[in-house]
Amino acid sequence: MSEHKKRSYMNPYLAGVLLGVVVLAANFISGRSVGSSGAVKSAIVAGVETIAPSHAENALFYKEYLSGHKGNPLNSWLVYEMLGVIIGGFLSGVISRRLTWKVEHSPKIKSRTRLIFALAGGILFGIGSQFGRGCTSGSALSGMAVLSLGGFISMISIFGTAFIFAYFFRKLWI
């Protein structure tokens, strides 16, 4: 571990403890924990409701969502939290001078390839997070903090699968 390349990031263990404190604070204040994919879901429901109201009334997915949630889908805990994440990430980038327009990839591939895989990965993650009822933050991290069985199942299947498939996608990263 050479020191110079990691200098600009916080020590991972310290960052981990702080992350734990954030999760703890969320549980203490709101009785729930952080999540991300739920905000995307709220945005999709709100978008479909605005653009195609009749479709939102008839399609099962939106019907189930709207019957379980009152008011505007965007007026939800997760949406406010994710707005905060964007601002928090930005502030951190400003402080540590990491604001750059950049496509990050292995030197062996082109930016275009990276972006195609990023899009595909995003689509898969979007679908998977709905099946999993939450993503790495909402299901795995938050679930593990409250010792939820589902959280551990999510964590093991996400990281386990990624490890198994890592070999096939190694050119993207190393």
Binding site: A120, G122, L124, F125, G128, S157, T161, F165, F169
Partner: peptide, 18 residues
């Protein structure tokens, strides 16, 4: 199932939603 799909998405996309 969701975890498996997310795992593939993770290694392809390099990110998770958060």
């Amino acid at each position: 199932l969701g975890g498996v799909i997310m795992g593939v998405g993770f290694i392809m996309g390099g990110y998770c939603p958060g």
